[in-house]
Design a protein around this nucleic acid. Sequence first.
RNA 1: GGAGGAAUGGCAGAGUGGUCGAAUGCGGCAGUCUUGAAAACUGUUGAGGGUCACACCUCCGGGGGUUCGAAUCCCUCUUCCUCCGCCA
Length: 423
Amino acid sequence: MLQLQILRENKENVITALKKRNIDAGPMVSKVLELDEKRRAIQTQLDNTLAESNKLSKEIGMLFKSGKAQEANELKEKTAGLKEASKQLGDDLNATAAALQEQLYLIPNMPHTSVPAGSSEEDNEEVHREGDIPKLSEGALPHWELAKKYDIIDFELGVKITGAGFPVYKGKGARLQRALISYFLDKNTEAGYTEMQVPHLVNEASGYGTGQLPDKEGQMYHVQADDLYLIPTAEVPVTNLHRDDLLAESDFPIKYTGYTPCFRREAGSYGAHVRGLNRLHQFDKVEIVRLEHPDNSYKALDEMVEHVKNILRELKLPYRILLLCGGDLGFTSALTYDFEVFSTAQDRWLEISSVSNFETFQANRLKLRYKDETGKSQLAHTLNGSSLALPRVLAGILENYQTENGIQIPEVLVPYCGFEVID
RNA sequence: GGAGGAAUGGCAGAGUGGUCGAAUGCGGCAGUCUUGAAAACUGUUGAGGGUCACACCUCCGGGGGUUCGAAUCCCUCUUCCUCCGCCA
């Protein structure tokens, strides 16, 4: 959620910035400012009415105390009208504030100045590429074939017990999953991130805090009986740990990592692009989250990018980094780097990590603030990134590490797996 | 699931109808003392709205009500604690 103050003071800048997302925010922003003005006008009226009735109440109290009941009762009659008026104004104020809030929720974050213009993923800018693409022998298989060949992932079994998009990992496949989780968590912990285990269901307020609600509720599984949402990413519970917090400057940086399963409904797409592990309803992910002082957040973002690079280097997977263009940027993000691993057998890039700076957009919703050196409350910056998402890393490993004698396990994972090859 | 109790500022904790946005302690900040630090002492210190700045308004878990007036009384929801029951 953008800060009202910024909209008030820099309306044109906001509209210009949002053009990068290929939206004309003019009407939305105008509506917000209109409602804001209305809200403040009502607030002023209400305040004045309340001030007057507070004053009368005090006088009545004094009169009763000094035994002048008659005069007090006369004054009482005067308060009736004020009471009526303040009730009406209070209702108006609530309605206007709610409308304002609703409108404000519709405006996405302003892209950072370095975000390239563009309308789709075609326009994302490749900023880095690293790693050798292996030359696979004749008859190299995509991961869903390999999964079947070595009996390590069973998609049909998942369909039987739950539905499409809920794979069952078996034997060495399951062990490799567990190894990846441990390995990622260890790498993150070494880099100073505190490991957290958080609930996999969150309440509505948490969904609003990080921006999944109100506009993306269709993407989350909702447990209606208890009004809870299955998390689409650890970002939601982990960032919300500090909802409504007022931190000290010395608390920064706050760095967390957590492993959680992620649940996404993402209905609607079929075909090769969502085949196998490419798109799932439930998948595992290890996330890193940072809360930062605004002055340091872009440095922190760079650190996170370097961190993910290091992991991919260790895994010896060929990857590239994309700077997302305005049109492809997530609703809440100001700047996002996507990491993609090259899947040799599918001959395509698979997104395995997304590292973003949300600046104050989430913090404003979360009421996540810190006290600056002058003692004033300021909004913190929030960031997060996958480090890493499992299924496509797994797909990348299976496909890129396949040999005629089975699938080699990347060296760094061998201690975690306890075996060197899947055959 | 049954029976009781509780929810107040960063934390602890007082306050049961008017001058309470709220005692006190701890913590934080500033100062005195000190070569420096600690201790001690003095002062200061909740959040949000509003204003050029004041004024003023709101907030004592959430929502609603009673009253001229609510942290304080009533209703309701949520959460926590204690005891009992059940249970991985």
